[in-house]
């Protein structure tokens, strides 16, 4: 006849909770360490000058969406140059604002014309915007190339054919004897100009303080990262409570053992 094992005394949540406590603690340990380190660094951000020091790593700007996408288009002009970088247009180093990638550039006596698929920008040689012609003011709805053989009027190639403007660039007439346009060619931008344009594109840059704060709060990883940081905080509270509970239980058992001896 086999002996029956004495029934175990159940006290509190038992080993299952202890196992969960350990596993959650180990699984989230990397997040806890990251939150603690970034918190300590943020606490000393003034001493370490994190609020004014900017990040230099390109991948961080890429992550924040501040790294230009696409190639730099650079048109050398007689007195200057025109560049397009990820939706921003520059005359020399001066930003002209947000414009799509140009289809072509033409230099006239008094102005520069930049053709986009559905608009044309007219600007002075000093970079002052004269007008942005909307597609309602341009024949066709897809400008493919622009040139100015006489430097007084514009000729554009569109999906509806070739058109020539008047000298005020107000009205267009179909160019009956369509000619082969000699568009202004692009060329690689000088390295110094490219570096300045990228700096201008990024604005004042991202400070270390901002990156640390975003890492600390989880925002660096977007809205889901914020939730992970929140849940990690809640998990840390629960781990603390379960840790206190098991410590108290251990101390109680130790006291009972010492009394029974």
């Amino acid at each position: 006849m086999s002996k029956r094992r004495p029934a175990k005394k159940r006290r509190g949540p038992g080993r299952a909770l202890l196992r969960l406590h350990r596993r959650v603690g180990v699984a989230l340990s990397a997040i806890f360490i990251a939150i603690c380190i970034t918190g300590i660094l943020l606490n000393h951000s003034d001493d370490l000058d994190f609020q004014s020091r900017t990040v230099q790593a390109d991948w961080v700007y890429d992550w924040y969406g501040l790294e230009p996408a696409g190639e730099l288009l650079h048109y050398p002009l007689p007195q200057n140059s025109l560049s397009s970088l990820d939706g921003q247009l520059f005359l020399g180093e001066k930003s002209l604002g947000h414009f799509p990638a140009p289809r072509g550039v033409a230099v006239l006596e008094n102005l520069i014309a930049v053709a986009f698929p559905r608009s044309i920008l007219l600007l002075t040689h000093q970079g002052q915007i004269i007008e942005t012609l909307p597609d309602a003011a341009i024949p066709g709805n897809d400008t493919r190339q622009i040139a100015s053989p006489d430097q007084r009027t514009l000729i554009i190639d569109t999906n509806l054919g070739q058109f020539r403007s008047d000298e005020a660039i107000l009205d267009w007439s179909a160019n009956e004897s369509a000619i082969a346009l000699a568009p202004l060619e692009t060329s690689p931008a000088p390295a110094a100009l490219k570096a300045k344009l990228i700096r201008s594109f990024r604005g004042e840059g991202i400070t270390w303080g901002r990156v640390l704060l975003d890492l600390h709060t989880g925002r660096f990883f977007g809205s889901a990262g914020k939730w992970i940081a929140d849940l990690s905080g809640i998990a840390l509270i629960l781990l603390t409570l379960t840790g206190v509970y098991y410590t108290m239980r251990y101390l109680k058992k130790a006291r009972e053992r010492s009394l029974s001896r």
Binding site: R23, V26, A27, I31, W63, Y64, G65, G222, S223, A224
Partner: peptide, 22 residues
């Protein structure tokens, strides 16, 4: 095991966050 499952969940969450960013 549970530990591996938690790790996979964390990696998936971070991937989701990356895709939602920017």
């Amino acid at each position: 095991n549970t530990f591996a499952q938690i790790r996979i969940a964390l990696v998936l969450s971070l991937a989701l966050a990356y895709s939602a960013f920017g």
